[in-house]
């Protein structure tokens, strides 16, 4: 068939959808491998070594294993919801890629409200977790789901407040605009507190240690995905890893100058390379934190949010607002 008869926009959509899905899986594989390997080095053991040189094919084999596994649906569970939940977790992750500016040219759509769009898409994950925990008909799953919702609702506030102070400075919600606005200095220099608050809240948003209470193994066996097996389980994991990628890419776009960096030999790809380098550097920190700290308790987690993160981010926001207003007057 001659594909030129198809509308070019449709072809573009199909190609980008394929690339995005491929990237989601690739990212999860890279992160999964990095996590196990880094965990290994932190624990002074080699990590996966058997499949392929240095075990790089381990995650591929794991994927095949997960696909081959039977999907077990508990008898007493809500069948439809139980099956929908993993999809609900996985489908939104494709959408958020639309607005990520990988480089000055490599961005699907530069929406005016790019930041809001991305945060909105990311918070759909909470619904998936709640549905999964509820429909599993398992007390441990329900515990995990309730914890996850309480945690995500609480931590979204400092996260948004800290991002808002950057938006005030950049005067735009478009992700591309924000990158361009931090031309001389990155916002991490002007807004260090906001960056720290955002990163901590981001760890909690993605349910990563030390805030991994929804899946606290020692307390809740596996939290909201206790009853999930095979591919439906791995869709949750894929969503989790992709959400980590999103949290870090927002951090890079808003605080670390997005794609900007010293031009590299492959000039055309320099922006994309810088962007990914920065994102994976932040992801490395996330993994590093996970394998170092114990888990906080649930009341401590919420106290930390309401007593420290929210007041500090409010003060930070207020100071930023005053400075932004005064700056043109004074200078």
């Amino acid at each position: 068939m001659d594909i030129s008869i198809l509308p070019p926009e449709l072809i573009r959509i199909v190609i980008s959808a394929v690339i995005i899905i491929a990237f989601v899986f690739l990212n999860a594989m890279v992160l999964g491998y990095a996590e196990r390997k880094l965990a290994g080095y932190i624990m002074r053991r080699p990590g996966p070594m058997e499949v392929g040189p240095q075990g790089i094919l381990q995650l591929m084999i794991d994927g095949v294993k997960l696909i081959g596994k039977q999907l077990i649906v508990p008898k007493e569970s809500g069948h439809a919801l139980f099956r929908i939940a993993p999809l609900l977790a996985f489908i939104p992750v494709g959408l958020a890629f639309v607005v990520i500016p990988f480089s000055d040219k490599l961005q699907a759509r530069d929406l005016d409200v790019g930041l809001v769009f991305m945060l909105a898409i990311m918070s759909v994950n909470v619904v998936a977790v709640l549905v999964a925990g509820w429909s599993s008909n398992n007390k441990y799953s329900l515990f995990g789901a309730i914890r996850s919702v309480a945690q995500n609702v609480a931590y979204e506030i400092p996260m948004l407040l800290s991002l808002l102070s950057v938006v005030l400075m950049a005067n735009t919600l478009s992700l591309k605009g924000i990158v361009l606005a931090q031309h001389p200095v990155w916002y991490v220099v002007c807004q260090p507190l906001a960056f720290i608050i955002y990163f901590v809240a981001g760890l909690a948003e993605t349910n990563r240690a030390p805030f991994d209470l929804p899946e606290a193994e020692s307390e809740l066996t596996a939290g909201f995905h206790t009853e999930y097996s095979g591919m439906s389980f791995s869709l949750f994991i894929l969503a989790e890893y992709t959400n980590m990628f999103f949290v870090c890419s927002i951090a890079v776009v808003l605080f670390l100058g997005g794609w900007s960096g010293i031009p590299l030999p492959f000039y055309a790809y320099s922006g994309g390379i810088w962007f990914l380098l920065k994102v994976y550097a932040l992801l490395f920190v996330m993994i590093w934190v996970r394998w170092t700290y114990p888990r906080v308790r649930f009341d401590q987690l919420l106290n930390f949010c309401w007593k420290y993160l929210i007041p500090f981010s409010l003060v930070n926001l207020m100071l930023t607002a005053i400075l932004v207003k005064l700056w043109p007057v004074v200078f």
């Binding site: 624990m43 002074r44 053991r45 030390p210 991994d212 193994e217 020692s218 114990p294 888990r295």
Partner: peptide, 16 residues
């Protein structure tokens, strides 16, 4: 004990 608290790494050192 540290594993109960959610820290995975110390058990590898102690087992070493």
């Amino acid at each position: 004990f540290l594993l109960d608290l959610g820290a995975f790494t110390p058990i590898m050192y102690t087992f070493d």
